[in-house]
Simulated scan of single mutants.
Amino acid sequence: MGKIWCRRAAAYILRIILPTSLLSQLINSVLYGRSSIDGTMGIWINCVSIIIVCVISACSTRNGQAWSHHFLGLQVVDQYSNLPISGVRMGLREIAHCVDFVPCFIGFLWPLWDTKGQTFADKIMRTTIINSKMNGESSIFSERNVLMATLTFVDGVASGPCKLYDESGNLYFEGYLKNGFREGGGKEYDNKGNVLQKDINVYKDENSRQHRSDCWNF
C-alpha cells in the first residue's frame, strides 16, 4: 500500500499542485506584475487556476488515466465494477480532492490504512486506484455488488480462463479469453445452470472475432 501511495502522491503533485502553482504565478505576473498577491483577488486567482488544471486533467483522461497516472503506472477505476472512469468523472474527482486538504491533509493520508485504499474524494466518487497493468485473477462486480465476471489478466489484458455472469449473478458463459477475445471452445448456461451449448465462439482468424470490449483491458 505504501508504494502505490507514494506514486499516487507523486502523480497528484505533478498533475495538480505544480501546474496550479505555476499557472497562478503566471496570471499574477501578467495582471499585477508579481508572482503572488494577497487578499480576495489572490484567492480567486488560485481557485480559477485549480479549476483550469482540473479541467485539463479531465480532458487528458483516457481509460481511467490522466497523463500523470499513465506516466506512473496507475489507473482510476470504479470501486464496484473495476472499470476505468470517464474524463468527466475524473474532473469531478479532482475537485472533490478539496475535502482531502481539511483537516491537515488527512484525506490524502487515509489510503495508508483504509482497506480499500481510498481518499475522501475516492469515497465521494466511489473510485479507487490500482496498478494500470493488472496480472492474475480478478473479479468484477456491479454497483449492486453482484459478481459479473471472473477473469485472468496478463499485463492488463484478459488472457486465460474466464467466467461471465448475468445481472442476477448466474453463470452464463465459461471459457477462455486470449488478448481480450473469446478464444476456442466454451460453454453457455441457462439461469438454472444447465449447459445450453458447448464449444461455441471458435474464431479462426482475427477478422472473424467480435470487437473486444474495453472492460477486458486494464
Rank of each mutant, 00 (worst) to 15 (best):
L109W: 12
A121R: 03
D100E: 10
H97A: 06
K133A: 07
I130T: 08
H97P: 04
F105T: 04
F108R: 03
G91E: 06
I130G: 02
S139E: 15
I95N: 07
F108A: 04
F101M: 09
F120E: 09
D114K: 05
D122P: 08
K123M: 13
P84G: 11
R89F: 00
I130N: 01
F120M: 13
R93H: 11
W113H: 10
T128L: 13
G117A: 03
L109R: 03
L92M: 15
S86Q: 05
G107Y: 13
K133M: 10
C104E: 04
M134Q: 14
A96P: 10
I95R: 11
N135F: 10
E94L: 11
T119R: 15
W110C: 05
G107D: 11
G91W: 06
F101Y: 14
T119N: 14
S139C: 09
I106Q: 00
S138R: 15
R93M: 10
F108E: 04
S132G: 14
C104P: 02
P103C: 06
H97Q: 12
P103S: 10
K116V: 00
S132Y: 08
Q118C: 05
T127R: 00
L92Q: 11
D122L: 07
I129F: 01
F101P: 07
I130E: 06
F101R: 05
L112T: 06
N131K: 15
T115M: 02
T119Q: 03
V99R: 03
K116L: 06
L112H: 01
W110M: 13
I124F: 14
W110G: 01
P103V: 14
T115A: 12
D114G: 04
T128G: 01
I140D: 14
E94G: 10
S86E: 08
I130L: 10
G87H: 05
L112R: 02
I124D: 05
F108C: 03
I129V: 15
I140L: 15
N135S: 09
D114C: 01
A121M: 03
I95K: 07
I129S: 01
A96Q: 13
D114R: 03
I130V: 14
R126Q: 12
I106G: 00
R126D: 05
F120N: 07
T119K: 03
K123H: 03
F120K: 06
M90F: 09
A96H: 09
M125K: 02
K133F: 09
D114E: 00
F108V: 05
I124W: 08
D114W: 08
T128I: 07
T127P: 01
M90P: 06
G117S: 09
G107C: 11
T115N: 07
K133E: 08
S139K: 14
I130D: 01
C98W: 13
I140S: 14
D100L: 09
T127N: 01
I85K: 01
F105Q: 05
A121P: 05
W113A: 13
D100C: 04
H97R: 11
N131F: 15
R126L: 12
G87A: 10
G107Q: 11
F105K: 01
F120T: 07
S86T: 14
I130W: 08
D122N: 04
T128D: 00
K123V: 04
R93K: 12
A96I: 09
L112A: 04
H97L: 09
I124S: 07
G91P: 10
F108Q: 03
A96T: 08
S86R: 10
I129R: 01
S86D: 06
